[in-house]
């Protein structure tokens, strides 16, 4: 008997983030005829973002695609993806999903299937180039940057004031100068029109995307072996495809920024190293604090290679 799995996505369906999901669904539905099918129910309009974890965990939906940050309140280990600097392919080859499932399954009743965010990173986008100087080669102190709670420790270390402004208000805030810039990903800023106001992109990039695919553990256990094999193999293929897809998009984004006259500012060697140390430490300190030195440390060794 054919199993139909309902999937909800964490971002509006039309956005680029969902391309890997759409590819995955097409591949599974083609290969899985008569065995397993995946049906996209919708995005945040169907299940609001803060409650998507609950819907997946309780089995109201079978699968979830989207930022694993949504799970961080319940599963500390879900923060490892954002704090990683290794590709999905390398992580899979090292058996990282088994380690992750050691937390996802007991803590969230969720089975982790695949990681689709390693092709893009995070970046600081500013309205003006920051002055030279300081431990990072450029002085960020006193800037007001948009960010979420994730950025708080990093911004603290940089001397930046965190402004928690909603995405829909960022355009106006940039236009009016209510913020001096924002922490963002290496994609989709030009889609949102930020390039009209951003004059400086700061390199190196840091952290990386945390789009993931997960399935409710009961739904997973109820699947026949054949269906599980199809999902696993197609997830692996989709991971590699997504990595290339997002890398390509990030390159296009950088080109679009260059075309709009945005400067790329590279922090000098020592400054860049200090910046990256600070950025990654800000995430891993939190993970270690929540998971303990042993579990958190093991996770860090697997996900982060300085």
């Amino acid at each position: 008997e054919e199993k139909v799995l309902k999937v909800v996505t964490g971002t509006p369906v039309s956005l680029v983030w969902n391309q890997p999901l759409k590819d995955f669904i097409a591949a599974v539905n083609e290969r899985g005829k008569g065995v397993v099918q995946v049906e996209l129910v919708g995005g945040p309009e169907a299940v609001p973002v803060p409650e998507q974890f609950r819907a997946l965990s309780s089995g109201l939906v079978d699968m979830h695609f989207g930022p694993n940050q949504y799970f961080q309140g319940d599963i500390p280990a879900s923060q490892a993806f954002n704090a990683s600097n290794r590709s999905a392919m390398d992580l899979r080859a090292d058996g990282a999903w088994d380690v992750i499932n050691g937390y996802y399954e007991p803590q969230g009743n969720i089975h982790y299937l695949g990681y689709f965010g390693s092709g893009y990173e995070f970046i600081l986008l500013l309205r003006e180039p920051p002055p030279e100087g300081g431990a990072f080669g450029r002085d960020f102190s006193g800037l007001r940057l948009r960010g979420t709670g994730t950025y708080a420790p990093l911004y603290d270390a940089l001397g930046v004031t965190l402004r928690d402004i909603q995405v829909a208000e960022v355009h106006t805030a940039l236009e009016r100068g209510a913020i001096d810039g924002l922490g963002w990903v290496t994609l989709a800023a030009t889609d949102l029109g930020f390039d009209d106001f951003i004059k400086a992109r700061i390199l190196p990039t840091f952290w990386q995307g945390d789009l993931g695919m997960a399935i409710n553990l009961d739904s997973w256990n109820a699947l026949p072996q054949e269906a599980r094999t199809i999902l696993n193999e197609e997830a692996a293929k989709a991971e590699a495809k997504a990595h290339a897809f997002f890398q390509d998009l990030a390159a296009k984004e950088a080109a679009a920024f260059a075309a709009a006259g945005t400067q790329t500012i590279e922090l000098p060697g020592d400054g860049a190293a200090a910046f990256l140390d600070t950025a990654y430490a800000s995430r891993w300190d939190e993970i270690l604090q929540r998971m303990g030195e042993d579990d958190g440390g093991a996770l860090r060794d697997l996900f982060y290679r300085p």
């Binding site: 039309s14 956005l15 995405v167 829909a168 208000e169 355009h171 889609d191 949102l192 029109g193 009209d196």
Partner: peptide, 15 residues
């Protein structure tokens, strides 16, 4: 804000 949301969801140039 609604126009910005529309632009981002529909992938229309927001400016």
């Amino acid at each position: 804000a609604l126009a910005v949301l529309l632009g981002s969801i529909a992938r229309i140039d927001i400016g």
